[in-house]
């Protein structure tokens, strides 16, 4: 079984977002880039599965669409335990553009399980995984919070509206994963960092693709008004304000 993990290179979650002067673009200068947290958990689970089922899981490949500045992120994934990496040399664009690039690079390759994080912490689109599945005409299961292999049967837990379900499915499939899929993201070991030096990172040319949407501009979120402090000895005041001023109870 070959597992593909889709990786998005995103600004560190604690980054303060700055904009260009015309507010039409994000200013990425000085930003620390990381593996999107959900993708990192997906990768961690893939590695865990390979460790648990060495005979079953042959290879873990990571893929991203982006410029050469995404290479350190891919090499970190290799250091964590992925076997090889693919970068589609296509920066920018929306989720449809990205998914088209990934599908182009992956089509015809023998990936049995494709893992995608449920969203990226930059545009929070929750779109690439489902689009990739549709472009490849694979089954997909979304909001997956656990993944286990039982021979060739793939067992997952997914969140559904109002609860959760245990599901069995088979390859090829795109699994769109969320919290719970792995607990602690993998930290690369010295050995991993060393072996990453010689693992292949293949760069694939972009394909012509039209995005379906474009960013018009940004705004800082509206400032909250100052917090109104209430005396802990006078909780009735809080009740009163929530009822008459905020009108939420």
């Amino acid at each position: 079984m070959n597992i593909l993990v889709c990786i998005s290179n995103v600004p560190d979650t604690t980054t303060r977002i700055k904009y260009s002067a015309d507010m039409k673009a994000v200013d990425y200068s000085g930003v620390q880039w990381i593996i999107n947290p959900w993708d990192e958990l997906a990768l961690t689970r893939a590695i865990e599965l390979k460790e648990a089922h060495p005979a079953l899981v042959q290879k873990i490949t990571v893929i991203t669409a982006g410029g050469a500045d995404a290479d350190p992120t891919l090499r970190k994934a290799l250091a964590c335990g992925a076997d090889d990496a693919i970068r589609v040399d296509a920066a920018g664009g929306d989720s449809l553009f990205t998914a088209t690039q990934l599908a182009h690079a992956v089509k015809g390759e023998p990936f049995d399980v494709i893992l995608c994080g449920i969203e990226s912490s930059d545009y929070n689109g929750s779109a690439v995984g489902g689009m990739l599945a549709e472009l490849l005409d694979y089954n997909s299961v979304s909001a997956v919070s656990s993944l286990n292999l039982d021979g060739n049967s793939i067992k997952v837990t997914r969140e559904i509206d109002g609860g959760k379900q245990s599901i069995e499915t088979s390859a090829p499939v795109v699994l769109i994963v969320q919290k719970g899929i792995a607990i602690n993201p993998r930290i690369p070991s010295m050995r991993g960092i060393m072996t990453a030096r010689t693992k292949p990172l293949k760069v694939v040319a972009a394909t012509a693709a039209a995005p379906g949407s474009k960013v018009v501009g940004y705004q800082a979120p509206p400032q909250k008004s100052a917090c109104k402090m209430i005396d802990p000895e006078n909780i009735d005041e809080l009740v009163h304000l929530l009822h008459t001023e905020a009108r939420v109870i």
Partner: peptide, 19 residues
């Protein structure tokens, strides 16, 4: 140790991290 920090300076020939 599992991450390799305890012997990170040792040559990989002797099971170190080679850093």
């Amino acid at each position: 140790s599992e991450l390799g920090f305890m012997g990170m300076l040792v040559d990989p020939e002797y099971d170190g991290g080679g850093m």
